[in-house]
Simulated scan of single mutants.
Amino acid sequence: MVSAIQKEQREQEIIEMIARIKEPFKMASRAYKGVDSVVTVEGRSIGNGHFAVIAGPCSVESHSQIIDIAKSIDGSGAKFLRGGAFKPRTSPYDFQGLQGEGLELLRAAKKATGLPVVTEIMSVKQLEDYADIIDVIQIGARNMQNFDLLKAAGKINKPVLLKRGMSATIEEFLMASEYILAGGNQQVILCERGIRTFEKYTRNTLDLSAVPVIKRFSHLPVVIDPSHATGDARYVESMSLAAVAAGADGLMIEVHNNPEKAVSDGKQSLTPEAFRALMVKVEQIAEITGKMM
């Protein structure tokens, strides 16, 4: 008969560690994992000193458009290609994306450049149908608390870039990431893209303080989207450089070869030439802050 002392000794041999985590987000917490996480896609890493820039148009519009932009940003040092195939829009009458055709064009752009593709998925059905041909699944601000989608993203073996909801607190943001982590998918990147405030001179208010705050409480990598945060290409450079200095692990920047004729978000998109000039400065700040690009 096993004594209480022998039973306790056996349990102690089986249990490697007990961690008491006060935060409601358990697996996202730094108490759960003290070392910064790294998400790597085809040899390109984000997190724990690895810095990467994700760039491309708000919407995929045509074969020539996405190929030209992909080649341009690749030559400027971007590590990932972003482009919207499915577009959640405020108005049902606005351009909703090229859908499956857009994904095929993104695949063609990857074939031409080698850049892994980041694109948004809006439903569990889309995730089931298209996850295999997307390198990084983006869950947008409007879907940050789409819990069925978060749970489904937790069951796939693909990196997920989760954007902060436009009115979400940092705790709510981290709790959303917890749904993905709790499902078994540890490849999560957080994206601060501005929050809604009373300010009207920018599209949103970029919360740069979210970077050090999240890094205090969480091990997950954080990227900044200055394009959606400001809504104006004139402010993207300054906010990008500030984000690098604040400790961000990457940037997500909209680039279009003809912003004035873009079908969506042209006002906030950089030209390829402006993006190239920005990347020179980003690399300088990244080097000063000890980031590897």
Rank of each mutant, 00 (worst) to 15 (best):
E237K: 12
F51I: 08
L150K: 07
L106D: 10
Y235T: 00
E23A: 13
S227G: 04
G266P: 01
L241V: 07
T202G: 03
K291M: 10
L208Y: 02
P221N: 05
I14A: 15
L181I: 01
T202S: 13
S37Q: 14
I224H: 03
E273V: 12
M166F: 14
L115R: 01
D135A: 11
R196K: 09
V35A: 15
K291N: 13
F51D: 09
D232R: 10
H228G: 02
L190S: 08
A131C: 12
E273Y: 12
R82P: 08
L206T: 01
K110C: 00
Q284N: 15
K261N: 14
L127Q: 01
Q187G: 08
D265E: 02
L81F: 04
I54Q: 09
A262G: 11
G56A: 09
D36Y: 15
T197K: 04
C191E: 01
G247W: 00
T113E: 02
A31S: 12
M239K: 06
G154N: 10
R164S: 04
S209A: 09
Q6I: 11
E42C: 11
Q186E: 15
K151H: 07
A233K: 05
V160E: 11
V263M: 14
R193N: 10
R30T: 03
H63N: 13
L149I: 04
S167G: 03
C58H: 11
P221H: 07
D265R: 04
I15T: 14
D132F: 08
D74Y: 14
R82T: 07
A210D: 10
A28P: 12
V255T: 11
L106E: 10
M27G: 11
Y93N: 11
G266I: 01
I21L: 06
A286S: 05
Y130L: 07
D265S: 03
A248P: 03
A31Q: 13
R142L: 03
G84M: 06
M239L: 12
M17L: 13
I73N: 10
G183I: 00
I69H: 04
Q186N: 15
I170P: 02
V188M: 06
G77A: 05
R142S: 04
G114R: 08
G231Q: 00
T90C: 02
R20I: 14
L81I: 10
M252E: 08
N157T: 12
G247S: 05
I66S: 10
I67V: 15
I170T: 08
V53A: 09
I46W: 07
K158E: 03
Y93V: 11
S218Q: 01
L206H: 05
K200H: 09
G231A: 03
Q145V: 01
I285N: 12
H228R: 00
L251P: 05
Y235W: 09
F95V: 05
K79Q: 15
C191D: 07
D94Q: 14
A152R: 07
Q138P: 07
V118W: 09
R142W: 04
P226I: 03
I46P: 11
A19E: 13
S62Q: 08
Y235K: 03
P226L: 00
Q268T: 02
L127K: 01
H63P: 06
Q268G: 08
V2D: 14
T271P: 05
A52F: 06
Q99R: 15
K7F: 13
M239F: 15
A248S: 13
A4L: 12
V39W: 00
S37C: 06
H50C: 13
A4D: 15
T205W: 00
M17V: 13
L241K: 06
P92C: 12
Q187R: 12
K267T: 09
S3C: 07
K110Q: 11
